[in-house]
């Protein structure tokens, strides 16, 4: 069994994982998946055992449309890209299990997602702000956080 089909088989074994049909080349990804948050650690383990790295982790504020946050994980291997984007939809205000035990890089990526968008990660060893100041009470990348003065002016008809 090749490495790629082994990965596909392992991913197929995860009940809540839904894989999209062949992704567009423009997406930059070879696989697009959505998974329940309870299974994200399992997904992370599958990728780690297949030799993949956690290339990127970030979150999207989708509260306006879906009352939920999206946490986006991107796994890739070294060499010819086999990039998988895994999405976890989490109701606003609720936590996602941390991948910090599986990937060293998740530690900082999750801290950044928490700092910027307020997503909490259960089981993270040190979930504190990383880029903004200590003790801040805002999450700047949330859509309802501050609007640039110029944009506000425009909205007011000025």
């Amino acid at each position: 069994m090749s490495e790629a089909s082994g990965l596909a088989a392992a991913l197929a074994g995860i009940a809540s994982l839904k894989t999209a049909e062949a992704p567009d080349a423009k997406s930059g990804c070879q696989g697009l998946h959505t998974v329940g948050r309870e299974a994200i650690v399992e997904v992370g383990r599958v990728f780690r055992e297949a030799g993949y790295m956690l290339e990127m982790l970030t979150a999207l504020d989708m509260r306006a449309a879906e009352q939920a946050m999206h946490v986006v994980y991107q796994f890739n291997r070294f060499g010819a890209p086999d990039r998988h984007r895994v999405r976890v939809v989490v109701p606003a205000g609720e936590a996602v299990p941390s991948l910090a035990d599986l990937f060293g890089s998740a530690n900082w990526y999750e801290r950044e997602a928490f700092d910027m968008l307020g997503v909490r990660f259960d089981g993270h060893p040190y979930l504190v702000r990383i880029l903004t100041e200590e003790g801040a009470d805002y999450h700047p990348l949330l859509k309802d956080f501050g609007v640039a003065p110029a944009a506000a002016e425009e909205a007011a008809g000025g």
């Binding site: 993949y52 790295m53 070294f78 010819a80 890209p81 990937f103 060293g104 890089s105």
Partner: peptide, 26 residues
């Protein structure tokens, strides 16, 4: 093993013996 764990790229990765470069890989 740090390469995979932390997603190290660039000259640091190449000094680990892995000939990986976005210009070549994609």
């Amino acid at each position: 093993e740090l390469a995979q764990q932390f997603g190290i790229t660039g000259p640091c990765l190449r000094a680990m013996g892995m000939a990986r470069d976005v210009r070549r890989d994609e």
